[in-house]
Computed example of a mutant assay.
Amino acid sequence: MIVGSHPREGDLEINVCKEKKLTNMRSSTADVAKRLKATVTMSLEEALAYITDDELLEVTPHNLRLRKMELSALDRKRHRRDGSRARD
């Protein structure tokens, strides 16, 4: 599932369920202030304009969900690599 956006090109592979490891340089109270921002509610037209070529828009009666076509990061890399060879 797509959980955010950033200004640079390309995707960031993250696991939102995994907790950051604490080191002696960072205390547990420092990470409390870093929270995800509230969700952005998009209309159908806005969501269609937002997605890229490797993403899908799932439409249900109650929700609009953005997600990648290939769910596995390894499959996405393999697809990009094989796709570039097919064009050459």
Rank of each mutant, 00 (worst) to 15 (best):
87 R>I: 12
14 I>M: 15
76 R>E: 05
19 E>W: 02
32 V>N: 15
62 H>T: 14
2 I>Q: 02
86 A>N: 11
32 V>D: 15
11 D>C: 01
50 Y>S: 08
76 R>S: 01
83 G>F: 05
71 L>Q: 13
11 D>W: 08
30 A>L: 05
67 R>T: 05
3 V>I: 14
27 S>Y: 01
39 T>P: 15
70 E>N: 11
77 K>V: 04
17 C>V: 10
21 K>A: 13
23 T>C: 03
67 R>Q: 05
85 R>W: 07
2 I>A: 08
21 K>P: 09
40 V>M: 12
69 M>N: 10
43 S>F: 03
21 K>R: 15
82 D>T: 08
41 T>S: 13
87 R>K: 13
58 E>R: 08
61 P>A: 12
72 S>K: 11
2 I>V: 15
21 K>N: 11
86 A>K: 15
61 P>E: 10
53 D>N: 04
58 E>V: 05
58 E>C: 05
26 R>L: 15
33 A>N: 11
9 E>F: 14
67 R>N: 01
74 L>S: 09
36 L>W: 10
6 H>T: 03
76 R>C: 01
63 N>Y: 12
43 S>P: 01
2 I>K: 01
58 E>M: 00
55 E>P: 03
40 V>F: 13
12 L>F: 12
60 T>E: 00
83 G>E: 10
80 R>W: 08
78 R>W: 02
44 L>I: 07
8 R>D: 10
37 K>P: 04
45 E>P: 00
53 D>K: 06
61 P>Q: 09
58 E>F: 07
33 A>F: 11
56 L>S: 00
26 R>F: 15
87 R>Y: 02
23 T>N: 05
4 G>T: 00
63 N>L: 15
36 L>F: 13
60 T>F: 05
86 A>S: 11
14 I>K: 02
74 L>H: 05
61 P>D: 07
20 K>F: 12
3 V>C: 12
68 K>E: 02
55 E>N: 02
48 L>W: 07
8 R>E: 12
22 L>R: 07
70 E>S: 06
53 D>I: 00
76 R>N: 05
78 R>Q: 10
15 N>H: 10
60 T>M: 02
35 R>V: 15
12 L>W: 11
24 N>H: 15
12 L>K: 15
3 V>T: 00
1 M>C: 02
3 V>K: 04
18 K>M: 06
25 M>C: 13
31 D>T: 15
55 E>R: 00
51 I>L: 08
87 R>A: 11
28 S>K: 13
48 L>G: 03
79 H>L: 12
53 D>W: 02
61 P>F: 09
8 R>K: 13
46 E>P: 03
6 H>C: 08
76 R>G: 01
74 L>V: 10
71 L>G: 03
9 E>A: 12
45 E>L: 09
16 V>Y: 08
16 V>Q: 07
46 E>H: 05
55 E>M: 15
2 I>F: 01
